[in-house]
Amino acid sequence: MGAPGRALEVREVRKRFGAVDVLRGVTLSADPGTFLTLLGPSGCGKTTLLRIVAGLELADSGSVTLGGEDLLAKPAQQRPVNTVFQQYALFPHLTVADNVAFGLRARRIPEADVARKVSEALELLQLGELAVRLPAKLSGGQKQRVALARALVNEPDILLLDEPMSALDAKLRAQVQLELRRLQRRIGRTFVLVTHDQDEALTVSDRILVMREGCIEQAGAPEDVYARPRTRFVAEFLGAANLIEATRDGDACETALGRLEPAEKPGWTRGCLCIRPEKLELSATRPEGANAIEATLEEVVYRGDHVEVFLGVSGLRARAPALNGLARGARVWVRLPAAHLMALEA
């Protein structure tokens, strides 16, 4: 089954609010049926970009097209795009069913079709029993599902989700993330999610676009972006990272930890190396090969399924399944495998 919908293309979109450049030429594309996530800290412009696609904000320049058709020329109510708002923005005077039917009725779709589509949408999100409730009587999770149903019932080319989990508590959030991912796979439409939560981004996305100060810093599949962060910002924002200041000397780098050899030669002379904590290898005896240093176990934090270790050099952090008898204060050997030691762009 080919994915329904059309491809979204955003080109060089710029937006200024007063003296602030919120978007500085953002370009991205989404093939039909992908789950795209805009990830970034607050103020990076991700919500503004979403609102521009929805038609709730005007772009200063650039283009947004859907299957080649210009979207920016259309007002919000004519775009085949629907939004799930951060606080859901359910109509408080309408029942769940009427909320879901809103978009269909506004387009004067025959009432028989409305009834059928609404019940399908309610079914899809397991809201059947709540059909006649008012939004004030719903829990946060239920509200979110109503907001999803209200948007999806219109069969939009693109579904936009503006931090839809932020109003839910942490426990529910993890569950809803999974459900959202499954839902997207099942209906096969393009979802564009905005979030500042890296776990959420990693859980649900086909592609993650990390945004910073109005630009896209890095884009790619979750595992690529996580494993190969291009910049210091991405490395720090997505997951934990050990950052090591370094000066290049031939193929190797001089650092506070000594001489390290990344697999890929850095393009700079002074810069930063990065390695994820779980890639550090700890051992009691000196390991084979390069990139090994000796350090003290300064702090050991037990986290249930793993232990987190703070080493006595340069604030280095490691993560290991178990410590095999090593305790605080012990001297250990740490190896930084070259394949996982990445040179970040300046």
Partner: peptide, 26 residues
């Protein structure tokens, strides 16, 4: 305004004729 080519999308801040999106309305 709505539904027509956007040759002049550039938002002239403050100008009376400038297009705005206000409460979702273009």
């Amino acid at each position: 305004l709505p539904g027509l080519p956007t040759a002049a999308l550039k938002n002239r801040d403050g100008a009376l004729g400038a297009r705005v999106v206000w409460l979702g309305e273009l």
